[in-house]
Design a protein around this nucleic acid. Structure first.
Lengths: 208, 208
DNA sequence: TCGTTAATGCTACACCTGTAGCGTTTACGG
DNA sequence: CCGTAAACGCTACAGGTGTAGCATTAACGA
């Protein structure tokens, strides 16, 4: 769907695939057992039995490992929820975002941390979430067809308005995940969409 | 106001203050000239003329340096805007957030990057923004008194709803700062506040 | 089966991180 | 002015990062 985190190899069989599997298994194991701070290339190499220079060659850095692990974990397709209301859909999406950011293995959280040091990780991060936002656009389209939002509403703006506070609280502010966090911001975004239409142009209604 | 990034020394005069100034000057210079990826302790030590072990001892890591630089840059007090409308106030706050995240020197951006490796940086990050959010609460209080929001509205929720998408786009998704970004999400948050009241409890209006 | 060569293993290197131990300088109080 | 000790300078060390060069293994096609 997007550019592969792992470049297409001219000789994908046998050993190459085996090496990749050993390395990705080591990545997951280290993330689960010790968290993303322990995800060093050296540790992955030692645990996987693959030589460290091989890991550096194929994945470049820890961010590359995470990008590949994310791709592997993304093979199961994702469908946006359909609860019957925009606030319900956004709430469910937000709960899934919160789970991704706090769940196990902490691939999403580790990828964010790595994205500040690794261009590969930064690209994978963007790619993953933009893909999710594009797929989630249907919940806004359904809201429009139900009359919960006006025709000009930009789906991505609505979804980011709902999701971003969850990222902010859990990732940047390191706040604990609370029961109502996801739903609270989902409802605020849904209410704003219903009232303002989620217009893309900067309005003048503000300064007046 | 918060715990100082730089521990209170028993001998603050002369040499100690001079060392700190040299080091913080080097931090700013490196950030401006080469960006936060070049902000290594070794580079700061070399540039400042202070020995690297001294930098490690006093600041512990690059995150500690950034935390102290942020404290130094925070000495000028901040007052929230008062444009006459909630959307206008949130828009102005968002523009200031965007400026902080993309401006020069990129202390805020660097602090976020460092916060994933340095507990000191993580604490400084939280402290700085929570302080801003607390000060900004007045714009919501004014909105309530104007009738733009209901009495139970939680100020922090409204402000985070407005700000978080700016963090998300500029920091996580590495998107360029656009003309309408700040205002767009400010208006959406303001509209949601006006419609939903920014309640803190998870409502049941969603699932119905 | 066998040659080609992609992929991996290995050694060595330069750099950054963070710490320990010890000697030296200098701020500060008496 | 002088003694104390805080703060700093210095060396050394144990890791992790990322790269270069060359040797070795094994996947794939002929």
């Amino acid at each position: 769907m997007e550019e592969p985190a792992q470049p297409v190899t001219a000789r994908p069989g046998g050993r190459t695939a085996r090496t990749r599997q050993h390395v990705l298994d080591a990545v997951t194991a280290l993330l689960v057992e010790q968290g993303y701070e322990a995800l060093t290339v050296d540790a992955v190499a030692a645990r996987s039995g693959v030589h460290r220079t091989t890991v550096y060659r194929r994945w470049r850095d820890a961010g590359g490992l995470l990008a590949d692990a994310l791709d592997a974990a993304r093979e199961q397709p994702w469908e946006p929820p359909d609860t019957g209301s925009l606030a319900g859909d956004l709430g469910e999406i937000n709960r899934q975002v919160a789970d991704a950011l706090t769940g196990t293995p902490p691939i999403a959280a580790a990828l964010i941390a790595a994205s500040f040091r690794s261009p590969t990780a930064a690209r994978a991060l963007r790619s993953f979430w933009e893909d999710r936002y594009a797929r989630a656009a249907v919940v806004v389209h359904r809201a429009i067809s139900r009359g919960e939002a006006t025709t000009g509403t930009d789906p991505r703006t609505v979804i980011v308005a709902a999701c971003a506070p969850v990222f902010h609280e859990l990732v940047l502010m390191r706040a604990p995940d609370t029961e109502d966090l996801a739903q609270r911001y989902a409802e605020l975004a849904a209410a704003g969409t219903a009232a303002a239409g989620g217009t893309t142009a900067a309005g003048t209604a503000a300064a007046g």
